[in-house]
């Protein structure tokens, strides 16, 4: 509770807004994949470059592994998105989200000499939107204020009383 006093109302408000926005984005990504059973991460992983290219190859070489990865990804996104929007286990959700987005980044980092296999909607060098979103989730994870407008605050109150 002490840290809350160090933060202005605006900062507080925008942190919570950010949490809702990222939660919305990830939850919809998860729901979309769930509602489209024909969706597969194959296309994404198939073009992977840099350090995780070998991992991507391993995943795509077997439909069984690919299926597990697809399921984990879909349900991971749904769980993280729900956590962020509802403010439930917010810190865990934010950390998990940051890791997941970090992985997406590492499968396709916009580094010098790597050419994306699919056209992108912008131009990136080292930094891209996945990396920024991952960093924002890291910020949310370390900011107690971002957890306030959420179900976690009920548990916090119970413990202190």
């Amino acid at each position: 509770m002490n840290t809350q006093t160090n933060i202005s109302k605006w900062q507080y408000g925008w942190l919570v807004t950010l949490r809702f926005l990222i939660g919305w984005h990830l939850l919809y990504e998860g729901i979309f994949k769930f509602l489209k059973p024909e969706w597969s991460s194959y296309g994404f992983l198939d073009g992977s470059q840099w350090v995780l290219a070998g991992v991507a190859d391993w995943i795509t070489s077997s439909s069984a592994v690919l299926n597990v990865v697809d399921q984990l990804n879909t349900w991971g996104l749904i769980a993280i998105g729900l956590g962020l929007i509802l403010g439930l286990f917010t810190r865990a959700a934010a950390i998990a989200g940051a890791i997941l987005l970090g992985l997406y980044y590492l499968f396709y980092p916009p580094l010098v000499g790597l050419t994306p296999s699919a056209p992108m909607e912008g131009n990136y060098l080292i930094v891209n939107k996945n990396l920024i979103e991952a960093a924002m989730l890291a910020l949310i994870a370390v900011s107690p204020a971002a957890r306030m407008y959420g179900l976690d605050s009920l548990f916090a109150r119970k413990v202190t009383s």
Binding site: F20, G23, W24, L27, L35, I85, L86, Y149, G150, L154
Partner: peptide, 23 residues
Amino acid sequence: SMLKALAGIPVLGALGFETFRKF
């Protein structure tokens, strides 16, 4: 506090509604 704690519910509702509309 309770209302604040449930702030995510309308967001979730909006997402659900929009998803339904989109699909």
